[in-house]
């Protein structure tokens, strides 16, 4: 039996929408998917007319769909944005080199200017070299810390006002759970913010904050978007894996659970007695930091001095030993959030 779309009541339903369970047609899916992102952009005042916006592009599904949707919405609703693609080359053979090829094709397809910054040019270390030095256990710490800063530096080179990233609702919900499990209250408070601003005054935002990962994949599939789907060759964070599996279980039990977790996360308010890190500027590179020396500089120092453990886990003692001034415990431990 042919089912008709419950929204337009005309076309044939071809998909069951993961977020609502509604059986709908392709066109209505595009409409609701894009409109929700438009609402997110408008309701949160993400952009101003004339903004120069860099899309953090990895070649993966999230950023590929983000580039496509932002370009579409910018035209449809006349946001008046100047869009760029900004990629980070971490120097991971067999992963990033291939995905960057996808980004280069996206550049042609969407006709957007592309800037690539590499770890090699910024830090004189590629991820392949870092992994050789530190092994596969803490390499994600380096990558996360360096990527966040690299994006900011690339944005400064492009002279843009704003970076958008493809973090989706699943990522946000998972991070909320992770921060509860780890007891990281400062991050629990911050991780639901849709816009953040660092010292560099470049705004960062997540237009996919309420967009389900499954729907991003669906959108890319039906629109036949060209994206790169291989996982990073270096192992992912194991503890995060627990949270991810649990989130998928919750989603299977009740599809709204992802949004419901974000609803909870946004409602959380942390007691003021809890010590929140004070933001300052790194004395070495001038990047925003919660210590005198930013995490990237500490990690880099460790690499350059042949002490890769510097800056991993409890760093106070090591920092003291090696004469790196610290005023309080560093906040960044595992990821760049």
């Amino acid at each position: 039996m042919v089912k008709t779309c419950v929204i337009c009541d005309a076309a044939r339903a071809v998909l069951k929408r993961p977020k609502t369970g509604q059986q709908i047609c392709k066109e209505c899916f595009y409409h609701v998917f894009e409109t929700e992102i438009h609402h997110t952009i408008i309701d949160n005042h993400l952009f101003s007319r004339g903004d120069k916006v860099a899309i953090g592009a990895s070649g993966g599904k999230d950023s590929t769909v983000l580039a496509h949707v932002l370009k579409t919405l910018n035209g449809r609703y006349n946001y008046g944005l100047d869009l760029f693609l900004l990629s980070v080359d971490e120097g991971i053979t067999g992963y990033r080199d291939d995905s960057l090829e996808t980004v280069k094709r996206n550049q042609q397809q969407y006709d957007l200017p592309l800037k690539i910054v590499s770890y090699e040019e910024l830090y004189h270390w590629t991820m392949d070299e870092i992994v050789k030095e530190v092994g596969l256990k803490n390499n994600c710490t380096f990558c996360g810390v360096f990527r966040r800063q690299a994006l900011d530096r690339g944005a400064a080179m492009l002279d843009v006002d704003h970076i958008v990233t493809g973090h989706n609702a699943d990522d946000i919900a998972e991070t909320i759970l992770m921060n509860i499990l780890r007891g990281d209250t400062p991050r629990l408070q911050r991780c639901t913010e849709i816009v953040t601003t660092g010292e560099s005054l470049i705004r960062r935002s997540k237009p996919f904050k309420y967009t389900y990962e499954k729907e991003i994949v669906m959108y890319a599939y039906f629109k036949k978007l060209d994206y790169f789907s291989t996982e990073c060759t270096y192992s992912p964070n194991a503890y995060r894996g627990y949270a991810r599996t649990f989130l998928k279980d919750l989603e299977a039990i009740r599809p709204t659970a992802i949004l419901d977790i974000i609803q909870s996360g946004e409602a959380f308010q942390i007691k003021t007695e809890v010590k929140m890190p004070v933001q300052q500027t790194c004395v070495r590179c001038g990047y925003m930091s919660s210590n005198e020396l930013c995490k990237a500089c500490v990690l880099l120092e460790g690499l350059n001095r042949g002490l890769p453990k510097l800056g991993i886990g409890k760093t106070e003692r090591l920092r003291k030993q090696h004469n790196l001034q610290v005023s309080e415990k560093p906040v960044i431990t595992e990821t760049a959030w």
């Binding site: 509860i180 919750l250 709204t256 659970a257 977790i261 909870s264 996360g265 409602a267 959380f268």
Partner: peptide
Amino acid sequence: KVISFTAKGRGYSL
């Protein structure tokens, strides 16, 4: 309860 209430959107009253 902390986790399941979070998952059910009860963060406000948690």
